[in-house]
Design a protein around this nucleic acid. Structure first.
Lengths: 364, 364
DNA sequence: GTAAAAAATGTAAACGTTTTTAAAAATATT
DNA sequence: AATATTTTTAAAAACGTTTACATTTTTTAC
């Protein structure tokens, strides 16, 4: 007796569906892709067959035939401490948004060089493999130039590059610090220090600029000794710590400190407490980034959110418009950061109860 | 005069190469895929043609024909604070390893539920789209069950699931804490506390177990009051802080504390300093995770590394073996964590100079 | 009712590979 | 030198779609 081996489990194809429904492949395709010109009778039959066979179109043959990959590559630099979790958050949000729009996400790493730079090796680009690209994290201009030769829509996050294929979505850093300063002004504080580090990237430069803008706008004089740059050889935490110690040695102490990132702020907070300064009463502080650090400390740190969700949704929308050749209004978008008010700021002069039951604080 | 429009820029295909080299497509394919049985003359001509046309095979048609996608999906849960950067690091290392082995990486998110769980919606699996799957981060058993029905090789990181398609690579958490405790014993310390939080996941449970093992092995009696669970409603930092305060109230204080993660350790460190305890001299501390927090604090925190690099290289190797049906020795792998010695531990009784120039420390 | 227009459906070619099969060329065996 | 064997090459069929085109059916217009 001949042994009957079951046919190999094969995914069902459009042809199977067509046969079962008693129509042609073309019609099934029309139903699946909603191309119109289908009678309701036909549609009904096809849908039933699809249901029954659990049919799902093979994306590879689709791409092969149509040239559309429905895939976006995210190029990222390797984990760098300064970026902390921000890039990760962006990648996650981008992925989530893209997949909800039926795009696949492939992850590509930029090879990091010994000198800290990242490079793309020449022509190993994503051939015909993706419809577009997102770039997250600090990236060399040279890399962007390579990408510009790939002839693909590219969306840069917090970067700019002038090329017709490129769009960019960036955070308006200066608006963030301006808002923070204005908030401190509103609390009655006028002696506001700014602690910053590396000004190599546009982000920090913008943050410093916003600090200045707000002072000009409200005609509050700036004191040069309130601008403190941390020692770049130090770790973030320690750097913030020592920067604040410098401020505390001034004969005329500030009554608020804006930090260029949350790490510095947390380090600075430690210094304040160690020196018996009450936060937020004596000196209020504001961080930048709204990192996970911010709500962890005591008092919970008011800080400026980088609005990753909005940044990503604007980026994805713009990129997909570009990919699908739908009309696109601009090639550069700016996202306004948002001040997250927690408990590290308070009005000046209004004295508050100092003790907080069992809270880890240095008693003065 | 007729205007000649240039032909649309088309990537060169295998046929173009074949034509230019004056051979058949099949031969080109044999050269490209190193299938052997090619004369050196032919190989030479084909390679030259490939070079000249910048030919690169179209991966979509390849997949369509051969069924091999050369793609691995990484399934991850959405950013959860507890995991901190660990998952991100894993994803990055996996990506880097996979792409160096010529595999593409697509990123998939597990939809998170209001109740904190993550779920896969039924049958929306990766059809014929990938060759295998990596799963990173806490994941519901229900999700793993769904995956097990997809009939694909799956590699779990720090998770287990009993199914022939699945392999798992996990960290031997208990070995890590055992090593830490042994190290503290070697420094002459015998009164070692353990601060832990949620024991819901196997990781923390293993860490506690290792603590116990080491005590048993070296016949050092454990004091129940040295086991402190943090208040799970508190933030990590604060939780660690208060847990240590509890320890400091004991009539017989510990001389070392092992924390179940770096966050608790950093919070605990703050408590120690606030109460004037010298670290590491009076009380040495060790964290867990080797997060970016660890080297930031003062003194830099000795902690236990989760060895993400090794975990990922083992995972990728095993998964690819399974995908390519090469012989695979085991279906479960254990990675030994490694103690990162920094400066938060010291021998007992040997008094050291207390002051450290300008270091942010609370003077007793 | 018929002609024309519009809508619905079917046919078949293409997308770029890999792979099976067959044929041709090179080499080894008598 | 003829044959058997092996190696190398070519031809052509698939993989599962989309889509241009042809055909049929239905609707509309007179």
């Amino acid at each position: 007796m001949k042994k009957i081996t079951p046919p190999p489990a094969r995914e069902s194809s459009i042809e199977d569906v067509a046969k079962l429904a008693g129509v042609s492949c073309a019609s099934v395709s029309r139903v699946v892709n909603r191309l119109g010109n289908v009678s309701s009778k036909m549609e009904e039959r096809v849908r039933r067959a699809i249901e029954e066979l659990h049919y799902r179109p093979n994306s590879y043959s689709r791409t092969l035939r149509s040239g559309k990959t429905n895939t976006v590559a995210i190029y990222r630099t390797s984990l760098a401490q300064k970026d902390e979790l921000y890039s990760e958050t962006l990648i996650q949000k981008l992925t989530s948004q893209l997949s909800s729009q039926n795009y696949r996400v492939v992850l590509e790493l930029l090879r990091s060089q010994p000198d800290g730079r990242h490079t793309l090796d020449g022509e190993n680009g994503p051939n015909r493999e993706v419809d577009g690209i997102c770039v997250v994290g600090h990236t060399d201009q040279a890399d962007l130039e390579v990408m510009s030769r790939w002839d693909l829509p590219v969306c840069l996050l917090n970067l700019t590059f002038d090329h017709p294929n490129f769009i960019s979505v960036s955070l308006a850093d200066s608006a963030g610090s301006a808002e923070a300063v204005q908030y401190l002004f509103a609390l009655g504080r006028r002696k506001i220090a700014f602690v910053y580090g590396n000004l190599q990237w546009p982000g920090p430069r913008g943050r410093l600029e916003g600090y200045r803008e707000a002072h000009r706008k409200f005609a509050v004089p700036m004191q040069p000794e309130f601008l403190v740059q941390v020692d770049l050889d130090e770790q973030n935490y320690t750097g913030g710590f020592h920067a604040v110690e410098k401020l505390l040695q001034l004969p005329d102490r500030p009554d608020a400190i804006l930090f260029v990132n949350d790490w510095y702020a947390v380090g600075g907070l430690a210094a304040l407490r160690q020196h018996g300064v009450r936060v937020p009463e004596e000196i209020s502080i504001i961080g930048f980034d709204d990192s996970w650090l911010a709500p962890q400390v005591l008092p919970p740190l008011s800080t400026i959110s980088l609005e990753p969700e909005e940044l990503c949704s604007v980026a994805v929308e713009a990129l997909l418009k570009k990919i699908e050749q739908r009309p696109l209004l601009r090639s550069e978008y700016l996202i306004r950061p948002r001040l997250m008010v927690r408990q590290s700021c308070s009005p000046l002069h209004r004295t508050e109860p100092v003790s907080r039951a069992n809270a880890p604080e240095i008693s003065p």
